[in-house]
């Protein structure tokens, strides 16, 4: 894995193990949350410390549905990039992947920045980070970023 990068002497930050996408119909409450659960199940997560980096825009009802999904996976501390970067539309998802790779390479998730209690402190180094991109109107995507073995 990563032979081309190693061959030219590049230092990898992390491994992008999987990217999955879907388009929930979003006709009824819960449609989007169900799609996020399906995507979550598709990611080849392993035992070990994990975190979630969310690109939630704050637009409703998408963000409330995503909040419902996040609550079910409360063992993964959450960080929402919109708090610091605003909603960068198409860029939000790759931004999340970059922050996940940086966090893994540095051996620590960045600190929480949220007064609602959704973001909590994380102890120790994350070995896997799930990046969540739920569009403000349409489209759901997830990526699994892992430490290099």
């Amino acid at each position: 894995m990563g032979q081309a990068a190693e061959a030219r002497g590049a230092k990898p930050y992390a491994k992008l193990s999987s990217v999955v996408t879907d388009l929930a119909r979003r006709k009824q409450g819960g449609d989007m949350e169900a799609t996020l659960e399906k995507l979550w199940d598709k990611l080849p997560k392993r035992a070990g410390k994990g975190a979630i980096i969310s690109g939630a825009s704050g637009a409703e009802p998408a963000t409330s549905e995503e909040r419902g999904f996040l609550k079910k996976h409360a063992d993964f501390p959450v960080r929402a990039t919109g708090t610091m970067f605003g909603h960068t539309m198409e860029t939000q998802f790759p931004l999340g992947i970059a922050l996940a790779a940086l966090s893994i390479s540095r051996g620590a998730l960045f600190p929480p920045n949220d007064s609602t209690g959704t973001e909590i402190e994380m102890q120790g180094a994350p070995t896997q980070i799930v990046v969540v991109g739920a569009g403000h109107w349409r489209g759901e995507g997830m990526a699994l970023v892992e430490a290099i073995d």
Partner: peptide, 16 residues
């Protein structure tokens, strides 16, 4: 993405 979203819903294509 609005045209693609409409087509995806109308014709039931898979994924995003």
């Amino acid at each position: 993405g609005s045209v693609a979203a409409h087509l995806a819903e109308t014709f039931g294509t898979k994924g995003s």
